[in-house]
Amino acid sequence: MREVRLVYFAWVRERIGVGDEIVSLPDTVVTAGDLIAFLKTRGEDYAAALEHENVIRVAIDQEHVEHDEALGSAREIALFPPMTGG
């Protein structure tokens, strides 16, 4: 097990119900995609927020990554919807 800080934005944050949290990850969680699958098992709010996995964007230590990216020694992992700034 290892601990990471997770941060959520926009409707991902609203559906999960918190903006950030410290979560212990089992060793089976290797990639960003594994993390999303793991979080979906944590309850209905998570399952609803992450239902459409392919639209969820992931940033590791504030840099965009694909879902097959290994989490490595990430300190902060962010999950959020496609961006709509500008």
Partner: peptide, 14 residues
């Protein structure tokens, strides 16, 4: 800059 800002900079509008 605008094209990438709109699609890659982490902002969301409600």
């Amino acid at each position: 800059i605008m094209d990438y800002l709109k699609t890659a900079a982490p902002f969301w509008k409600k």
